[in-house]
């Protein structure tokens, strides 16, 4: 138990963060290098103004027409992504871990709110799963890996919630939480989860093309 804990809390956490950061840097760098080599034109059309114009429009809930057409999906998506980022960073336990490890600290969320947000993430995962099962056009596109990824995202939240509530078996769940969270972190650069990296890149590029070259909106 202590050996597992020490490993998960120590080296594995370090490895997870390293894999995440280096993996993301690698993905961005290799994408950049490939673009330089074979898509050099994209750099010539990049416009900061129009890139931001597009990115901002797609970061503001309901700012794009398609978001308004799917209000539930939009709401769930925004809540999901917001919570997905906020909980890991602003949960008090996590913030304290950062504090202990690197002696940096920031404001954290009240645990009650964090609990609700955690439930929101899990609920959103269920919603997404539901879409994948019940919406024909989404089911058609869904692959096994899409479902696995959803599971990988939900698991740390589920186990974390369990551990937080100190439900029976919570010590094991705590370890499951830590391990699954670290695995998720490491998966980001190497699975579809890297869409978080490429969102600003693609949106920025398309925004530039639409704004500066095609003089049109893209939302």
């Amino acid at each position: 138990m202590h050996a597992v804990f020490n490993f998960v809390r120590g080296p594995m956490a370090g490895i997870a963060f390293a894999v995440f950061i280096i993996g993301c840097l690698y993905q961005m760098a290799s994408m950049w290098r490939l673009a330089r080599k074979k898509d050099a034109v994209v750099f010539h059309y990049f416009s900061l103004f129009y890139a931001l114009r597009s990115i901002i429009h797609w970061m503001v809930p309901f700012a794009a027409l398609n978001m308004r057409r799917h209000p539930v999906m939009t709401g769930v998506t925004f809540v999901f992504h917001l919570c997905l980022f906020a909980v890991p960073f602003f949960l008090s336990s996590h913030a304290i871990l950062f504090k202990e490890s690197w002696d940096v600290s920031w404001a954290w969320l009240p645990d009650g709110i964090a609990d609700i947000m955690t439930l929101a993430v899990m609920g959103a995962c269920l919603f997404f799963l539901g879409r994948r099962i019940f919406l024909r056009e989404v089911r058609y596109l869904t692959t096994v890996s899409d479902v696995l990824i959803l599971f990988c995202v939900a698991l740390p939240f589920f186990s974390g919630f369990w551990a937080g509530q100190q439900w029976p078996g919570f010590p094991v769940m705590t370890l499951v939480h830590m391990i699954s969270g670290e695995i998720l972190l490491m998966l980001i650069p190497f699975t579809r989860l890297r869409h978080m990296l490429f969102f600003p890149v693609i949106r920025g590029y398309m925004g530039s093309e639409f704004g500066a070259v095609r003089r049109a909106r893209d939302w």
Partner: peptide
Amino acid sequence: GARLRVYADTCVHCGL
């Protein structure tokens, strides 16, 4: 190139 790779890899199959 990068566009092909990034477009194909980034799609999360959301169907939107």
